[in-house]
């Protein structure tokens, strides 16, 4: 009993600031304020959400845009992780550090930086202008949000895959080579399957922040395209409907917990991918 005493301040803190707030979200999510000002238990907000075309569209849009961004990150990032784990480069440590550094910069600033490059009067259009093309509107569309997600979360895909590949038992690869397997076969039969834990933690580390973002879509779509994050933000800060906002937060939370649950099933023995 005495040995656990030192955890008590934290336990009190956790109940007050972790458990109670989530119960409040649940309370608001499952209640509605009636015309006479009283509060009643109700599933009305859930029914509204799942019958509202606008909100279901926002949910669907968030999921598929995050999924597309995750897929692009995997395609772009896997080769980088693979090449950085081999002996292609001498100063690998420095290169990995260079991948980590942008992640320590504020996400808003990283996203904002693209405005200068992609603006209709920006650098890309100026360059295209030299060869007689454009100007094109790169910003304020679905593609610009996906682009922003890929840019912001690519290191989250590369690093976990890289850390698994570095720790991989290379004698397995050599054994396959000795037994006469061609390089592509070695890759698909040995290296890739062994790197799957890193791939799965990369997928969840990109998908989760992407599906809940509202800052990237705010900046790169000029508040035109609404994702789940934007819709929830609106309910709390503009529409002032906390019950509905809480309902949507609960739905988003369940979506994330399901994703986590699925990815943890495939991700045993790989603790977080060793980000730091």
């Amino acid at each position: 009993m005495r040995k656990t005493l030192s955890a008590y301040p934290y336990l009190v803190w956790a109940v007050l600031f972790i458990v109670v707030p989530l119960l409040l979200v649940a309370y608001y999510g499952f209640t509605v304020e009636q015309a006479d000002g009283t509060v009643a238990f109700s599933l009305e907000n859930f029914r509204d959400f799942f019958t509202s075309e606008i909100y279901l569209q926002a949910l669907w849009r968030s999921i598929w845009m995050a999924a597309v961004a995750t897929a692009i990150c995997l395609l772009l990032g896997y080769p980088v992780a693979y090449y950085l784990s081999g002996n292609l480069f001498k100063n690998k440590g420095l290169l990995v550090l260079l991948l980590v550094i942008p992640m320590w910069m504020n996400l808003l600033l990283r996203t904002y930086a693209w405005l200068i490059l992609l603006d209709t009067k920006g650098i890309f259009n100026a360059l295209l202008g030299f060869i007689g093309l454009g100007p094109f509107e790169f910003l304020y569309g679905t593609h610009s949000i996906i682009f922003g997600m890929v840019y912001n979360f690519l290191p989250f895909m590369i690093l976990p895959i890289h850390s698994v590949l570095v720790k991989m038992d290379h004698s397995l690869v050599e054994a396959a080579q000795d037994l006469g397997a061609p390089p592509t076969r070695v890759f698909f039969k040995v290296t890739f399957p062994l790197s799957l834990p890193g791939v799965f933690s990369g997928i969840s580390m990109v998908f989760m922040p992407a599906v809940t973002t509202f800052a990237i879509s705010d900046i790169l779509s000029g508040r035109k395209i609404q994702l789940m994050g934007n819709v929830i933000e609106n309910q709390f800060l503009r529409a002032d409907n906390w019950n509905y906002g809480s309902t949507m937060s609960l739905i988003l939370m369940v979506l994330i917990l399901i994703t986590m649950f699925i990815s943890s099933k495939y991700d045993k023995g790989n603790e977080g991918g060793g980000l730091l």
Partner: peptide, 13 residues
Amino acid sequence: NPDIVTGIALMLL
């Protein structure tokens, strides 16, 4: 939890 949910939960508190 998504940051947005943690943020909202704390704000409600």
